[in-house]
């Protein structure tokens, strides 16, 4: 079972790899987006905290 045969997926390469590709893409987005969001949350909370401390 050579690598190229593996890639060919018995002629259904396009469908199998795009299915797995899309699933991987969704997994990636669902991994990266929450991490970016949490960094954004930390930044806004720190900014509010600093601003609150200035007012006191």
């Amino acid at each position: 079972m050579t690598f190229s045969q593996f890639l060919a997926m018995g002629g259904f390469a396009f469908y199998v790899w795009s299915a797995y590709g899309f699933a991987a893409f969704v997994v990636l987005v669902n991994t990266v987006q929450p991490i970016i969001h949490s960094r954004k949350v930390w930044r806004t909370l720190r900014r509010d905290l600093d601003r609150a401390e200035e007012e006191e």
């Binding site: 469908y15 199998v16 797995y20």
Partner: peptide, 20 residues
Amino acid sequence: LYWAPPDYQQGDAYRIMFVH
């Protein structure tokens, strides 16, 4: 993708099942 043999009817297309 590698270990499971192709299906006699659908060939390798059935592997999409493992994601779907």
